[in-house]
């Protein structure tokens, strides 16, 4: 059976000549349907690059990226992406932003508004539909970005440190929401983070990347279910997995510094 996403020997180099940066070196990764894959690694190891390649924004220097057996040729609504920085359209309201992709599909207004309302509810932003991004807090903006992405009903969700810039509390709440949404729709998710705890709390599989040039160093499968509440945090298995992954990441962070 073909995987949902299949990366083979992907190499990515920025620029050419002596100034070139080897961002990724020979990445092999297969992601099955309904998997939640989290990617951790030191800063600058190429995590964003990997996601941009899957998104189709960048071309790999070598190797192949296939989505359901077809080579990725460019960006498309089948892959929804939430960027590291807020990337809402500042001139559109919350409603306009969430409905953006639907507008682009040429959907009728009534239908569009119905769907937008549904996603507004999903991310708990009722009452803020007519606000502009600058009138929202960082956490609310990232919720809008999530709803904007989900509203296009992508096959696969790409998230690049979506909560990196948020405070710890907001981040926890949004993590729970993402997990809830994933369980509800059982979408396929590729989620980049540098936070090991987040990686374990969300991912069914955790990929650790090496310092630049990025390679896949190790993979961990989370054998237990975390459920919907916070109980998993008291689970010794959770703490143990977290520690193992952190040790693996730490080596790379130190290697990156050296």
């Amino acid at each position: 059976m073909a995987s949902c996403l299949d990366l083979r020997a992907v190499v990515m180099r920025y620029g050419a000549g002596p100034g070139a940066v080897n961002a990724l070196e020979s990445i092999d990764l297969a992601v099955e349907d309904h998997e939640f894959v989290t990617i951790v690694g030191p800063s600058g190891c190429g995590k964003s690059t990997l996601l941009y390649l899957v998104g189709g924004f960048l071309r790999p220097t070598a190797g192949s990226l296939q989505l359901r057996g077809k080579e990725i040729a460019g960006p498309g609504p089948d892959r929804g992406i939430v960027f590291q920085r807020y990337s809402l359209f500042p001139w559109l309201t919350v409603r306009g932003n969430i409905g953006y992709g639907l507008d682009e599909q040429g959907m009728a207004k009534a239908e569009r508004d119905r769907i937008v309302d549904e996603y507004v509810q999903l991310v708990h932003l009722e009452g803020f539909e007519e606000r502009y991004p600058r009138e929202l807090s960082g956490g609310m903006q990232q919720r809008v970005a999530l709803a904007q992405t989900l509203a296009c009903e992508p096959d696969i969700l790409l998230m690049d440190e979506p909560f990196g810039a948020l405070d710890a509390q907001t981040r926890r709440i949004l993590q729970d929401e993402v997990r809830r949404i994933w369980r509800r729709d059982t979408k396929t998710v590729l989620f980049v983070t540098h936070d090991v705890e987040e990686a374990v709390a969300l991912g069914t599989r955790i990929v650790v990347m090496s310092a630049r040039p990025g390679r896949i160093k190790e993979m961990f499968v989370r054998g237990f279910d975390v459920g919907d509440g916070e109980e998993f945090e008291a689970d010794p298995a959770f703490a143990e997995l977290k520690l193992r992954i952190w040790r693996s990441v730490k080596e790379e962070v130190e290697a990156a510094r050296a």
Partner: peptide
Amino acid sequence: DDMLIWSARARGTSEARLLWRVVLPS
């Protein structure tokens, strides 16, 4: 911002519409 352009592309905006939908307002 490149991210805005990418974001629009990922949501199905064509190159021609990009000018109207993203570049001009930004």
